[in-house]
Design a protein around this nucleic acid. Structure first.
Length: 433
RNA sequence: GGAGAGUUGGCGGAGUGGUUGAACGCGGCGGUCUUGAAAACCGUUGAGGAUGCAAGUCCUCCGGGGGUUCGAAUCCCUCACUCUCCGCCA
């Protein structure tokens, strides 16, 4: 949620900034009007409550001394009825205001390009050089078939389309990648590892904004009202929902010391409405593995920390010797909660396309407001933290690009050196047929 | 799954329907003492909101929601969660 005070005090400037994301001004005016109405109702009901509190005390005293309290009770009953009326109206206004605010996206950072969709994204840098070899590179599906590491038909038998089975040295590669990434984040980048639940309740899904808007993209366990997580962001970020980083019971947050968590989890996505899009092989699946990084930071350093976060994700890819590019998303392509977002895209020479394997976002206080996640600042005041998250990174597309970029002429795939310790020293994935 | 007990401030733990935002203890913060520290002593110590330039004033919050009442942490209903015992199970 954005800060209602922005609409109250700096309406025109805020409307202009949100206009870059296509937010209609009517919606903002509605929020502003509801806020004004809300405050008027609060003033009215609180005045009456103060009156009632004082009168009730008086009645208590009179009753104790045996006086007559019937008339005073009658009058206060009327006041009570009036309070109930106003409170009912207030609850409705509160609800409407919240609904309206939830439909307003985060204010975009000044430096991001304005545009309607991905066509206006900006390539920030290219990392690693890709040279086509002197043999033709097939798609990951063919490479995987020769290596014997994917079984799509049996995944369909077990569950349905979009639930591939990964086998043998492919499964081991997957596990090695997870270990490599977690070790990199924890040993070199200052992260704490977490192994959270893969299933969460509705409060958690609401906290990070998957609910109520995107329910149809999620898998739901109806009996328990639990949800399968679409990303580790959900349990890891909600871990500190309704909490205050006070430096006593929870870590202290200063400009120099963020709280950084990383987690491996499977991710479950129904991908409703995406039928037919990029569904070949491993490119878009309903269950996949991912390592996620989440930062809780001091507001003064959040955008700076985003740059660090992107570098941390990049380090995963450079360590594997892969060529990729870094994209800054335009105002129209960013996620709802983000103020600024970078994507990392690996080049897949077999598919002849760029594959998004990481999305690193700065949410400023937008997500924290909804999560009610705060910290005690140096001045002793309790303030909202800023949150960031980034994939570090998503597995299936990483495997695709790795297979295609590291393919040799004989059909084998070279295992990057950093992974070999996790694979018993093995140097290549070898064809089995 | 069956039976019972419970849910109060960072933690432990009181609480009679009416100066209880909540005794007391611990912890935290500030101070006195000390060369320094500990101990001891003194003080202080929740969150959200409305209003105001500010100081302040006021409102709400004792698991969530609803009810009774002039007045609810305290009474009633309901939901959720936790614990203990039994059963089942990796």
């Amino acid at each position: 949620m954005i800060d209602i005070k922005k609409l109250r005090d700096e309406f025109d400037a805020t409307a202009a900034e949100l206009g870059r994301r296509g937010v209609e001004i009517e919606k903002l005016q509605k929020a502003r009007d509801l806020d004004a109405k809300r405050r008027a109702l609060i003033a009215e009901t609180e005045t009456l409550k103060a009156k009632r509190n004082a009168a009730s005390k008086e009645i208590g005293k009179i009753a104790a001394s045996g006086g007559d309290i019937a008339a005073a009770k009658d009058e206060m009953r009327k006041v009570g009825d009036r309070i109930a009326e106003i409170d009912k109206e207030l609850a409705q206004v509160d609800h409407d205001l919240r609904e309206t605010l939830l439909m307003i996206p985060n204010i975009p950072a000044a430096e991001i390009p304005t545009g309607p969709d991905s066509s206006t994204n900006k390539v920030v840098r290219m990392v690693g050089e890709w040279k086509d070899p002197d043999f033709k590179i097939p798609t990951h599906i063919e490479i995987g078939e020769k290596l014997g590491i994917f079984d799509f038909p049996r995944g369909v038998k077990l569950t349905g389309t979009g639930f591939p089975v990964i086998l043998g040295q492919g499964a081991k590669l997957q596990r090695a990648l997870i270990q490599y990434m977690l070790d990199l984040h924890c040993q070199k980048q200052g992260y704490t590892e977490m192994l959270p639940p893969f299933v969460v309740n509705s409060d958690s899904m609401t906290g990070t904004g998957q609910l109520p808007k995107f329910a149809e993209d999620l898998y739901h366990c109806q009996i328990d009202d639990f949800w399968l997580i679409p990303t580790a962001e959900v349990p890891v970020t909600n871990y500190y929902r309704d909490d205050i980083f006070d430096g006593v019971n929870l870590p202290k947050i200063t400009p120099e010391s963020p709280v950084k968590l990383t987690a491996y989890t499977p991710c479950f996505r129904r991908e409703a409405g995406s039928a037919g899009k990029m569904t070949r092989g491993m490119l878009r699946v309903h269950q996949f593995d991912k390592v996620e990084m989440v930062n809780f930071v001091h507001p003064s350093v959040s955008f700076q920390q985003l740059e660090t976060l992107v570098k941390e994700a990049e380090e995963v890819l450079t360590g594997l010797g892969l060529a990729f590019r870094v994209i800054m998303l335009s105002s129209g392509d960013m996620g709802f909660s983000a103020a600024k977002c970078y994507d990392l895209e690996l080049w897949a020479p077999g598919e002849q396309q760029w594959l998004e394997v990481s999305s690193c976002s700065c949410f400023t206080d937008y997500q924290a407001r909804r999560l009610n996640c705060r910290f005690k600042d140096a001045d002793g005041k309790t303030k909202l933290v800023h949150t960031l998250n980034g994939s570090g990174v998503a597995l299936p597309r990483l495997v695709v690009a790795l297979l295609e970029q590291h393919l040799n002429a004989d059909g084998s795939v070279t295992i990057p050196e950093v992974l070999r310790p996790y694979m018993g020293g093995k140097e290549r994935l070898e064809p089995v047929k």
